[in-house]
Amino acid sequence: MGRPDWSQGAGGGPFPGIYFKRVGTMDYFLELFFGGLTRGSIYALIALGYTMVYGIIELINFAHGEIYMIGAFTGLIVAGVLGTLGFPMLGILFVALACAVIWSAAYGYTVEKIAYKPLRNAPRLSPLISAIGMSIFLQNYVLLAQTSDFLPFPKLTPDFAFMEPLRSFVSTSELFIIGSTLLVCVALTLFIKYTRLGKAMRATAQNRKMAMLVGVKVDKVISATFVIGSALAAVGGVLIASHIGQINFYFGFIAGVKAFTAAVLGGIGSVPGAMLGGLILGWTEAFATGYVSSDYEDVFAFALLVLILIFRPEGILGKDSTQKV
């Protein structure tokens, strides 16, 4: 398995053949562009979960990266079982996605009930530590129940014939990831804007006590937020795992930290901010890797974050929260 392992921040990245092309050609630029877009889409999918949870209960849900990892593992297991039964490729993809979404959502829901709900009124750092503990627990649970090795993930997206002319700079699975992310983001935006539950979520995020007073069932809204965030992360997990072709129990942690960075970059608590932050982070990493040096990929990402936050402390699209007396 000589693939570069981008999930651990080891440089390289999911850009096949990147080092053999001439720097400066249009193809090279487009490849980086789409590679960054793919990566950014995944960051955005995970970041949405962070930002929604943060918007509602002001908690950095460190276990979110693990939910994403569990989604990918569920996808792998389901794909493996269906694969031996001889299902067609696209069928496997959809069933694996559905199962990953269901189980990730279940994990998100349970984690919230066990580790965060009893801490609603606790000091601010307690749920954070509880989340870190949950993250360590889930990592080791998967490590013990499955394996610590890298598992090869089957390729689930077929190569379409009409993609042939574009193959030099974008692959089908990349288009698939970008497309699904776009779809999910639009659906989520509409959901939050127009449905009853979406309105309840916005109300709870604005002011929990007031929302409770006007009859919003706050506990249910919080559970729903965790379920939706986990489902989004699961979609990202299965798609990226199928794209890079291998997973292990640790691959959620760094991806989670990066996605959280993206959420903060865009302004934590803001849904469009998470999408924008994910894309900016994805492109920064891709172009920095491609044009400058692959060793310092993460340095660029974090340096960008530090710069943006120093000049705009509430993130790009975040609300200015001036402290009042």
Partner: peptide, 21 residues
Amino acid sequence: EEYRMLAFGAFMVMVMVFRPQ
């Protein structure tokens, strides 16, 4: 060995849930 880190994570959650301060 193998259950050490699992217990570590569970322990952190437990302390926080039962004694947040």
